[in-house]
Design a binder for these strands. Structure first.
Length: 608
DNA sequence: GCGAGGCTGTATCACACCAA
DNA sequence: TTGGTGTGATACAGCCTCGC
């Protein structure tokens, strides 16, 4: 294979990649443009498809990277990505020397062998050479032959990949091992395969309680604690007369997570054996928690760890476990005091605890600095609906994925219209809006009513605060269009046959008693956001609106708090960075003024 | 195989409340 | 008024099952 390790090699050797006509020029220009976009010399940018995908696929704010439109960005990405795939041998080149190269490539021989025996009713089953492709790609990039795969390399590659690529890599490794195990049945593979299968990486997502065989008594104790926590010790007879538990189910599941984390860390560190953990009182103790927190912290500081070094998770876990120790295990007063000190330790309660996430704060700042981003956010309902309408115009000719895109864009337009024009709701409240039925939360303008409105009862809201607002005409227009045109398509003409139930929910899911699933809901928003060249989650949208209003109207803090349905003190705390920013700007303006004045008053002679 | 919706667990963030 | 504590939420990823 040609050695294409950097973008420079790639740009210089582009003629050998088999492009037709002027395409090579387009691709070369795209590669050269990467220098500006990456702000690095071409020779320093590695030819690595996964690094490229990690950076440029998914949520990418095209405008922030200097592209004029999402389309322009996608064109650039497609040119560069295609070149990377050709360079890595993932795309047929079609030129004369290709066959000779294939023979020289052990991976290609293996792939050809599998391809010849893949398909319906054949030895390996359908598309098995595709299964292998990601393993081959990564191995080629690392310069490893099939004999040179080892557990460490597999682990590193597995960790570096994400989502479907990671899943595919694991599937490929499993299949590769199958081939090795049955190498006797495939004599033609000859010396291509190693003698023994390679140890596979462990999945990054642990099972609850580390999937270990733990004593029944521990599991029973956890359930008893959760029950106690939810009902705050109320007797079952009393509970029957109460409408809801004292605590939310979400919160209880968070306690389960903390216990799971503690057990997993203890077992992985070998601090205890599974059979030794018989109840929560064995593990929710100061000494053990301190040890485990130390181990977790060390791992977070490790360069290759997937944990963020300044994340607040550890603090949350320690708080949860401390709570169990105090209220369930009932440790001594002395131990309670130690736990309290532990929670305050800098390593556990780092500087991010209690503050808005850095990424969100950065986005809010970008929103204030960049006019293009700001207008893209504010125009989101219209831009996404326009794109959906264009697609809808030739619905019958659309592919399934294009129809899906059309519907998702329409969902996003409706979400954005409510968030940006009516009320910056939390995702759960937005998702649960009903437009008919007994408990209607969004009402359209009717003959008797002058204006539509949104009203959400307090018990549906995080802090039990009732939320309500009138429905502005530009919001209502988009929501109505969604209800009349796009929602029926979700219910009766879902492109992939996943018709939603025609429930009372504005955003229906496949089940009649609940709205669309949160993950699907967030995905629709993501599709619309990306179409607008932005990178923002539903919750960041809420922040974005608050940031813009507060920055322009610092004296309207109480109004903004009321609108968001939170405490003014909380707004003050979370948007404090706006004050610092404003103070800095004001300070700079004053300094400039003073400098100008000083220059005016200083005689020209002494200035030189 | 691929893409969908939905469920679940982990990681992280938001924010109400309380006490100093 | 401010900082600490505890609760409740979102984001993200992996897995499952289903239809095309």
């Amino acid at each position: 294979m040609q050695d294409f390790r950097t973008f420079r090699c790639l740009a210089e050797g582009l003629d050998r990649l088999g492009y037709e006509g002027n395409t090579a020029n387009d691709v070369r220009r795209a590669l050269v443009r990467a220098e500006k976009i990456y702000n690095e010399p071409l020779g320093a940018i590695r030819v690595d498809l996964d690094a490229f995908d990690a950076r440029w696929r998914g949520k990418v704010s095209a405008l922030e990277h200097g592209f004029r439109s999402r389309g322009g960005f996608e064109k650039w990405r497609s040119n560069v990505r295609g070149a990377l795939k050709r360079a890595l041998g993932l795309k047929a080149l079609g030129d004369a020397g290709a066959d000779d190269r294939r023979l020289a490539d052990e991976w290609q021989q293996l792939k050809d062998y599998v391809a010849e025996r893949s398909g319906n009713g054949r030895v390996f089953g359908p598309h098995r050479e595709i299964t292998l492709s990601i393993l081959i790609e990564r191995a080629r990039l690392a310069g490893r032959s099939p004999h040179q795969l080892d557990p460490t390399w597999l682990r590193e590659e597995y960790d570096a990949l994400h989502n479907k690529r990671r899943k595919g890599f694991m599937r490929a490794a499993v299949f590769f091992n199958e081939l090795v195990r049955h190498r006797g049945a495939h004599p033609n593979l000859g010396n291509l395969l190693p003698q023994a299968p390679c140890q596979l990486p462990r999945s990054q997502r642990g099972k609850q309680y580390a999937g270990a065989a733990l004593p029944e008594s521990l599991l029973a104790d956890v359930e008893a604690f959760i029950e106690h926590y939810l009902w705050q010790g109320e007797e079952p007879l009393v509970r029957d007369h109460l409408e809801d538990a004292e605590r939310s189910v979400q919160s209880a599941s968070s306690y389960r997570s903390a216990i799971s984390w503690l057990v997993r860390e203890i077992l992985e560190a070998g601090l205890m054996k599974p059979e030794e953990i018989t109840s929560l009182s064995d593990i929710c103790r100061y000494q053990l928690l301190r040890q485990v927190a130390g181990i977790f912290r060390t791992r977070a500081l490790d360069e290759v760890s997937h944990l963020r070094r300044d994340a607040t998770s550890l603090h949350t876990y320690v708080c949860r476990v401390s709570y169990i120790a105090r209220h369930w295990v009932r440790v001594s007063a002395e131990e309670v005091e130690r736990l309290k000190r532990l929670r305050k330790k800098k390593a556990i309660k780092n500087h991010r605890v209690g503050k808005m996430g850095e990424e969100r704060e950065a986005f809010a700042s970008a929103l204030l600095d960049n006019l293009r981003i700001r207008s893209a956010v504010l125009g989101l309902p219209e831009t996404t609906l326009r794109e959906a309408d264009v697609l809808l115009g030739h619905w019958d000719d659309l592919s399934l994925s294009a129809r899906m895109r059309c519907l998702r864009l329409a969902v996003c337009a409706c979400q954005a219209a409510i968030l940006l024009r009516a009320m910056a709701l939390r995702a759960t409240n937005l998702r649960s809006i009903t437009f008919r039925g007994k408990e209607t939360t969004i009402v359209f303008k009717g003959e008797a009513r002058k204006a539509g409105k949104i009203s959400i009862p307090g018990r549906q809201v995080k802090n039990n605060r009732e939320l309500g607002c009138p429905l502005p005409p530009d919001c209502e227009k988009i929501v109505r269009r969604f209800v009349e045109v796009y929602r029926p398509l979700l219910v009766t003409a879902h492109p992939y046959g996943k018709n939603a139930s025609d429930s009372d929910f504005l955003f229906p899911g496949t089940l009649a008693d609940r709205p669309v699933d949160a993950s699907v809901f967030a995905h629709c928003f993501e599709i619309g956001i990306r179409a607008a060249g932005l990178d923002m989650t539903l919750h960041m949208c809420r922040h974005a609106i608050a940031t813009l209003i507060l920055y322009e109207n610092p004296d309207r803090l109480v109004m903004v708090a009321d609108w968001l349905g939170i405490d003014p003190a909380t707004v003050r705390k979370h948007y404090g960075f706006l004050d610092s920013r404003r103070a800095a700007e004001l300070g700079q303006q004053h300094m400039q003024k003073l400098i100008r004045e000083a220059r005016r008053r200083t005689p020209v002679r002494s200035r030189s």
